[in-house]
Amino acid sequence: MIAVDEKHLIKQLADSVTQRSAFGLVVKQYSELLYWQIRRIVLNHEDTNDVLQNTFIKAWNNLDTFRNDSKLSTWLYRIAINESLDFVRKQKNEISIERDTDATMSISDILMADEYFDGNEIQAQLMQAVSKLPEAQRTVFNMRYFDGMKYSEISKVLSTSEGALKASFHIAVQKISKFFQSID
């Protein structure tokens, strides 16, 4: 990842002359970070690629709404998570309830068959358990468990109190534990 001074980057983004080239640097700097965040929600590479592109296009079109009140990375994280959750919601709506149940049950099988999944069966089952969680719990769990983000950082991205995040994470962990107990 290319490390660019965020202050300098934001100044360039604000200037209409350097805006486009600066955005290119933003894409280079944050694409990988955002990709993994999206991938854990969307699971599939092709879909993740689409959502990541939409995230950056949305950021570009709404550059005026960035007011430097939060960090650039926080702002992008927020867009990426919203886009990912929107994608999953649309996907669920498109699938009938009957097929949805089957699809949820077979997520670990789908992952095991995916050429871009490197995990074992237990890890595929973990991803399945995470995908069954409600949106808020899933997002907090991913950010905390896989990325090791602090509650204060997650709080800025999700605009939720740290107490509520801790509660969500705790419930998520309990649900995942129960999921594993049920399949043992």
Binding site: R39, F117, Q123, Q125, L126, M127, G148
Partner: peptide, 9 residues
């Protein structure tokens, strides 16, 4: 049981 490493590529 599962680890925290990245399982995707």
């Amino acid at each position: 049981r599962c680890g925290t490493g990245n399982v995707f590529r």
